[in-house]
Design a protein around this nucleic acid. Structure first.
Lengths: 133, 133
DNA sequence: GTAAGGCTTCCAGCAGCAGGAAGGTCAACA
DNA sequence: TGTTGACCTTCCTGCTGCTGGAAGCCTTAC
C-alpha cells in the first residue's frame, strides 16, 4: 500500500507519515520502485499514533504507548499511570488558561472600547514598571 | 543599565532580552565597551512585553500591542478587540482540553490498572483500525 | 597579577511537522 | 509511441520562542 492510501486510511498527512518513519516510529518496507509499502501492521501503528497524538500524548509518550501496546505481558497499570499523568497535566493547563481568561476578560470589560485613546488594558500592561521604579 | 540589571528588573532572562532585540522589539543603545545599555524606556518596553507575553499574546500580537501603546491617538476599541479575540481563542482551547480530559479520564476509569495485561486504554487507541478495515 | 563574574557573538537544537524544489515512476489516453 | 498528470522520492528550509553552549572580551575585587 502506497503512502497516499496509508494517509487516507489513517487521516495522517503523508508528510507526517514520512516524519514518523524518520524518527523511527514506523518502518514500512519498500517496493521495487523505491516507494514505501505499508502493510496492515504499519497502518495499524499509524492509526494508533493518530489516536494517541490526538489525545494529547507527545511523540515520546506515543513511543512508550506503542511499546506497551506491542508488549503482550505489560501491566495495564503502566498504561493507566501514563493516562492519569496526562489528565493531571491537562488539569494544570486548564487552570492556567482559566485564570488567564478571567484576567483578560476583566481587563477587556473595564475598557470602554470606543474611539477614545484611554485604555485600561494598555495601562495595565504598562503598569508593572511603576511598581518597580 | 546592563543586560543583567534589565533582566532583574523585568523578570526576563538575558537570553530572551537579546532575542527580543534580534527580532526588533527593543533597540537599546550600546556603551563604549560594546555592552548593551538599557534606558528607562527600554526597560518599560521589556516589562510591557513580559506582561503581555504572560497573558498569552504571541510575539506578533505583542508587537501590535506595543505600537498601540506607543500611539497616543489609537482607539481603545482596537486594543479591546485584540483582547477579546484572545479570550475567544482561550475559550476554544479550554473546550478542546476539557473534552480531551473527559475522554482520557473515562478511558482511565475503565482500566482496572493492575498487573494483568488487559487494558481498555490501549484497546481504544488501537480500535480505530477495526472500523476502517 | 589573577580569578570570578559579566558581557559579547555565533551556532545548534527543542517539538512536530509543513512547504517547496528537483527529479523518478506509473497509469491512462490519443 | 508519446505525453500528460498524478503520485512518489529525497533533501533543505522554516515555523514559535526561546535555551544552551562555546569562544573570547571586559570589569571588578583581592
Amino acid at each position: 500500500m502506497n503512502i497516499g492510501d496509508a494517509s487516507e486510511k489513517t487521516g495522517l498527512p503523508a508528510k507526517t507519515i514520512r516524519y514518523y518513519e524518520d524518527i523511527k516510529l514506523v518502518k514500512p518496507s519498500r517496493a521495487s520502485n523505491g516507494y514505501r509499502d505499508y502493510a496492515d501492521e504499519d497502518i495499524h501503528r499509524l492509526a494508533f499514533l493518530q489516536r494517541s497524538r490526538s489525545l494529547g500524548f507527545t511523540i515520546e509518550e506515543c513511543r512508550v504507548l506503542l511499546s506497551l501496546y506491542q508488549d503482550k505481558d505489560r501491566a495495564s497499570a503502566d498504561v493507566k499511570a501514563l493516562a492519569l499523568e496526562k489528565v493531571d497535566e491537562i488539569d494544570r493547563k486548564l487552570k492556567e488558561l482559566k485564570s488567564l481568561k478571567s484576567t483578560l476578560k476583566s481587563l477587556a470589560d473595564h475598557c470602554h472600547g470606543d474611539d477614545r485613546p484611554d485604555c485600561p488594558i494598555i495601562d495595565d500592561l504598562a503598569a508593572e514598571l511603576a511598581v518597580k521604579r
